[in-house]
Amino acid sequence: MNVWGLLTGGLILAAAYIHHGLGTRKIWLPALAKLDEAQVSQRIKATLGFMWHGITLWSIVMGLMAIYAVFTQNSAPEFAKAFYLSICLLNTPFAIVATLYGKLVYDKFRASPQWLLFWPISFTSFLAFISV
């Protein structure tokens, strides 16, 4: 069994839970209240809203893909490799931007602390990829 793959799946599902549970309460709902206050257009609110909730579903899907890859690694190793590579390469952009954005724009690494979630996911998915 690919332990790194299982860990990747667990981390991604945990990140989805944190994003949806904690993030929505602490970030999205206060943001939405301020967006209403600033009377921004429906299109802006809907775009940011769909991105926010889309990330929840995207994370759930990625987590399930990682877990699926763990259990099909022996019968379909190419799929497992592709899934881990894809998860690694598509989480790394978010890890890089999250690390730089808060520091460069707001001078605080903790202004966008989500790199704390994205880097471990990128790292473990890379380890899962090379251990297939």
């Binding site: 970030i27 206060p30 301020k34 903790r110 202004a111």
Partner: peptide
């Protein structure tokens, strides 16, 4: 607006 909120939406 809190930096955390602006930083999060901006990085996304």
């Amino acid at each position: 607006q809190k930096k955390l909120v602006k930083g999060t939406l901006g990085f996304i």
